[in-house]
């Protein structure tokens, strides 16, 4: 297998063929923020938080899907990128009803972590205050669409790992929503196995365990990589990294 040598932020790194820029960056502890990306699931490339600059191109590239080529020069944290990432989180904050103080995942939320990471101290866009629905018909779980960032991790984990494909997206643009089956109450969905994977991988408080009170709900998205590895490579032991 050939090895590719390329530069990230002035330092040289090597990548195996097929590695993405994000994988190499993660392996070498270079921080690139992500939201829709989750190890173990297919890449979606939609949150645009991981965009990086590549020398010689005026465009920005998502690190999660872009593969390095020999002697490529990548920049991951220029002022422009920082500004854009901050703005993307700002847009998300304005889009949903994200009131951390009263949210089940307060303190364990990836959106909240991102807001700290990009130093989002205020939002310049008017809040849209959507009136989306909350579905508590499932016996164990709840979906509050007002907290959803449409990363589709739940859609992908349900389709790719649990193979049930309960979730998908309805609507278009700002009206997009995650729906169960053909838009029926989650609790009545005949395809849902109640495995709870979607709840574990959801980065925000949109999917949560029934009965969780403010700040109580802890997510556990790392286990998906363990499941996928166990299936594909027959590695049955969880590493500390995956439990992070």
């Amino acid at each position: 297998m050939s090895v590719i040598t390329f530069t990230i932020d002035g330092e040289q790194y090597s990548a195996k063929e097929g590695d993405t820029i994000l994988q190499v960056a993660r392996d070498n502890k270079i921080p690139i923020p992500t939201l829709c990306y989750l190890e173990g699931l297919s890449t979606f490339g939609a949150c645009r938080l991981c965009v990086v600059e590549i020398e010689g191109s005026p465009k920005l590239f998502p690190a999660c899907t872009t593969k390095p080529t020999e002697s490529m020069v990548v920049r991951t944290s220029t002022d422009k990128l920082k500004k854009y990432r901050r703005m993307i989180v700002e847009l998300l904050a304005s889009e949903g009803n994200h009131q951390c103080a009263v949210c089940v995942v307060n303190g364990h939320c990836e959106l909240q972590d991102l807001a700290y990471e990009v130093e989002l101290d205020h939002v310049r866009f008017p809040y849209l205050f959507p009136k989306k629905s909350l579905d508590a018909t499932h016996k164990d779980f709840v979906i509050d669409r007002n907290r959803c960032v449409l990363c589709t991790r739940c859609v992908r984990v349900c389709h790719e790992v649990e193979a049930a494909h309960v979730w998908d997206i309805a609507g278009r643009g700002i009206d997009c929503e995650i729906i169960a089956d053909l838009n029926q109450p989650w609790g009545t969905s005949p395809s849902c196995t109640s495995c709870g994977k979607c709840v574990r991988v959801c980065p925000t408080g949109a999917l949560f365990d029934k009965g969780a009170a403010v700040g109580e709900m802890q997510k556990e998205s790392g286990f998906i990589k363990f499941i996928v590895n166990a299936r594909n490579k027959h590695e049955w032991v969880r590493t500390a990294h995956e439990e992070e």
């Binding site: 949150c47 304005s94 889009e95 008017p126 849209l128 449409l150 643009g173 700002i174 009206d175």
Partner: peptide, 21 residues
């Protein structure tokens, strides 16, 4: 553009809404 955004990526989904507003 706002009406026709598919809603997949954040900049287009939310950005076109705010541009219009």
């Amino acid at each position: 553009c706002m009406d026709e955004s598919c809603g997949k990526c954040i900049p287009c989904r939310v950005g076109t809404k705010h541009i219009y507003m």
